[in-house]
Design a protein around this nucleic acid. Structure first.
Length: 283
DNA sequence: CTTACGGCCTGGGTGC
DNA sequence: TGCACCCAGGCCGTAA
C-alpha cells in the first residue's frame, strides 16, 4: 500500500524522467476513479510536465499548458491501495486494470494501473487551499519535534487513529503507524493526551527513523506496490510487526498479536507495548 | 469541534 | 469447480 515512503520513492523516480517531457496524448479506460475525465482529456494533451511533487500520499505532476494561455495546473494522483504509476515502453505488455495511458514526447508511456480503483485522479489548479490539499496536516519528516508534540499531546483520540489521520500528519498509513509504535514501545490504543514527554519524544524519533529507512529501501512491497520503473521495494524485509502476527517480537520474543483499533488492524508486541488501563465506558 | 463507528467502494486470496 | 467471506485505505455520514 503506497504510503509516504512508497509515494516518495515513486516521486523521486518520476522526477528523473518526467520534467521537461510533453504529454502528447491521453487514453482512458475505466474512469470512475477520476474526478473529471473530460477535463483530463481536454487539458492534458500538449501540456509539458515541469515538476513532480509529493504531498502526503498524493503525487502532483505540475503541468504547463502549451496552448498559449500559460495556465498552470497539476495532475493530482492518489494511489489508494493498489495504484501503480509506471513509465515504460509503449510496446510493453499492458497489465490488467490499467486505465490511464499518457504518451510522452520521448517515445515512452506513463501508465496508471489500479486493481481496486481505490485511487483518485484529477486536475487541480494552482490555488493553494482550493485543491483540498490545504487541509492536510504536517509532513512528519518536515515537522519539528515541538510541532509534532503539539499535534498530539492534547488529543483524547487513540494514538493509532491520530497517526493515521491525514489532517494531523500527512503520509502515514497502517504499515508505518504500526512499525513506528512498536519502535517507540507505545500501544496503539493509548490516548494522545496520556503519552508522557518521553513517549512523545520516542514516537517522534521512531516515526522519522522508520520513514527514512523505508525511503532508503525504496518502500514496502506487500502485495501490489512497485516503484515508477516497476521494481519492488525492500522495506517489507525490515517490518517488525506489520503482518507478523504469531511470529516472535524482535526485541523480546513474545508473539506478535493483531487486534482492531479504531476499525483498522493493528500489529503489536503485547509485552513491549503495554496496553492502557481499560477506559470507563463512554455514556 | 472532537471522537467513535459503521458502511461503502472493488476484486484477489482463502477456505470450505 | 464454485462461492461466500474477509480484508485493505480513505472518506463520508451519523451520533454522542
Amino acid at each position: 500500500m503506497p504510503e509516504l515512503p512508497e509515494v516518495e520513492t515513486i516521486a523521486r523516480g518520476l522526477r528523473t524522467t518526467l520534467p521537461g517531457r510533453k504529454i502528447l496524448s491521453v487514453r482512458l479506460g475505466k474512469t470512475d476513479f477520476i474526478d473529471d475525465p473530460v477535463a483530463i482529456e481536454r487539458e492534458i494533451p500538449g501540456a509539458r510536465i515541469v515538476a513532480v511533487r509529493r504531498h502526503g500520499k498524493f503525487l502532483l505532476l505540475d503541468l504547463e499548458s502549451s496552448n498559449g494561455t500559460a495556465r498552470n495546473f497539476s495532475l493530482l494522483v492518489h494511489l489508494g491501495m493498489t495504484g501503480r504509476l509506471v513509465t515504460c515502453d509503449p510496446q510493453a505488455p499492458v497489465p490488467p486494470h490499467t486505465h490511464v495511458f499518457f504518451a510522452l514526447d520521448d517515445g515512452r508511456e506513463l501508465r496508471y494501473t489500479d486493481v481496486r480503483r481505490f485511487g483518485r485522479m484529477g486536475i487541480v489548479t494552482e490555488e493553494p487551499q482550493k485543491n483540498g490539499l490545504g487541509s492536510l496536516g504536517l509532513d512528519p519528516l518536515e515537522a519539528s519535534e515541538s510541532q509534532f508534540v503539539a499535534l498530539l499531546k492534547d488529543r483524547r483520540a487513540r494514538i493509532k487513529a491520530l497517526l493515521l489521520d491525514q489532517h494531523v500528519l500527512r503520509g502515514i498509513g497502517n504499515i508505518y503507524a504500526d512499525e513506528s509504535l512498536w519502535r517507540a514501545r507505545i500501544h496503539p490504543m493509548r490516548l494522545g493526551a496520556m503519552l508522557s514527554a518521553d513517549e512523545l519524544h520516542r514516537l517522534y524519533r521512531a516515526v522519522r527513523e522508520v520513514l527514512n529507512e523505508a525511503i532508503r529501501l525504496r518502500g514496502s512491497s506487500i502485495a501490489d506496490y512497485v516503484d515508477s520503473e516497476g521494481n519492488l521495494g525492500g522495506f517489507q524485509r525490515r517490518h517488525r510487526v506489520y503482518q507478523r502476527t504469531g511470529k516472535k517480537c524482535f526485541r523480546c520474543g513474545t508473539l506478535i498479536r493483531r487486534t482492531i483499533v479504531d476499525g483498522r488492524s493493528s500489529h503489536l508486541c503485547p509485552r513491549c507495548q503495554s496496553a492502557p488501563r481499560a477506559r470507563r465506558k463512554a455514556r
